[in-house]
Design a protein around this nucleic acid. Sequence first.
DNA 1: ATTATTTATGAGTCAACCTCATTTTTGGAG
DNA 2: CTCCAAAAATGAGGTTGACTCATAAATAAT
Lengths: 223, 223
Amino acid sequence: MSSSIQRQKIEAREACILAAAGQVFSEAGFDGARMADIARRAEIAEGTLYLYYKNKQDLLDAVVAKFWGDLTIGAENAFDTTLPALAQLAALAEYHLHAIIDDFAIVGFTYRGTNNQADQRRDQVRHYVRVFDQILRRGIDRGDVHPDIVIWQARDIFYGTLEFSARTLVLRGLSFDKSVVTNLISLMRTSYWKIEQTHNHATPLDEVLVRLARIEAALESGG
Amino acid sequence: MSSSIQRQKIEAREACILAAAGQVFSEAGFDGARMADIARRAEIAEGTLYLYYKNKQDLLDAVVAKFWGDLTIGAENAFDTTLPALAQLAALAEYHLHAIIDDFAIVGFTYRGTNNQADQRRDQVRHYVRVFDQILRRGIDRGDVHPDIVIWQARDIFYGTLEFSARTLVLRGLSFDKSVVTNLISLMRTSYWKIEQTHNHATPLDEVLVRLARIEAALESGG
DNA sequence: ATTATTTATGAGTCAACCTCATTTTTGGAG
DNA sequence: CTCCAAAAATGAGGTTGACTCATAAATAAT
């Protein structure tokens, strides 16, 4: 059927428009971006834009929605769910930091205005961050993570830290810095994770205490 | 002199414009805000706005600049520098969270666009966050804080967490939540602070060392 | 009281988003 | 292949809102 070919064509054009819009918005910001520029870069007439998107804001929303949608798919495949929760969290953090550094401008467009469409975007972000929540909940179920943590606060620590770090890196002209991830994960482990030795083996300190007790006992009995 | 009276008048009018602009921008966003509305609310003609501010963006920048300027003054007086560093940090966090919840929309305007004036705003923010850096550095000097932490990363954890938590609270229609501050401070203490009991009572390791020393003494005297 | 200077005004200009009458393309029927 | 109806594309023009500038009002000085 030619209708499927047609559909592919239309989807390709939509993708083309979104790509052009993403570029122009990222380079010039929302106000600086000209609909005429976007149309020219997508190689269509200005009026054609409005067949696909109601207005400029709607076009930006579509760009942002695509970003978070792709990000969610990527995040769900960024780690192996059989790994320890902490390793999953590290992988997610690394993936997220990479992604928001690469498309830093788009992230900045996510939270803006007080219009009605802001709800849509929030739902999309909410769906995205669910990946984090699942890791943490699995960690709690497995007994690795302290069960009485406040998940939304942990989530804000996680994503807030990564976004601010990304901004710092971008503004300084730097790129991905693994130590950001390492330190964040270390922080969360220290505060939220139960001590590992619970199900592993005795720590050095435990062993030392046992040997000390033996020696003391020997000395006492000998003395 | 009438010139000082005149200057006061002009400053009062500037403050009036900034207040009106802050309200309209917060309610309607940058694009939704109408210069005519701002002028009407400030009880001046639209053209008069342009005697004080070059254009709409410049006016927004002034609003944002005033916000961060006031915030810096408040932050510097928000705590007693003779307190322990951790208490200072808690006070700063509480102050910051309150402030950005109250003026949440303004915070959102801080990072936008890629224009030349963005540098000014970044300097202002940089000056503001210096308060945090000073607390941490004093903590290091006093020996309370681990000296090999990466300050900018700690800063991004601090402000990133607070801003994201503020967003969560505002979007849920809630207001200030002290537990956000408490948990953040607890997190930073656990990861960055040296263990307090060093000058209180013995740690497990200290206890071990004491017992070892006793044993060695017993062996020497006995042998 | 008069003049000079500074400050304020709002009607008009212009730029950019968006609409819609017209044109072009597409896809099936004869 | 030709014709036609329906869908898609176009870009000139309407509309809106930021910004300007000639004019007016207010202030300061002589």
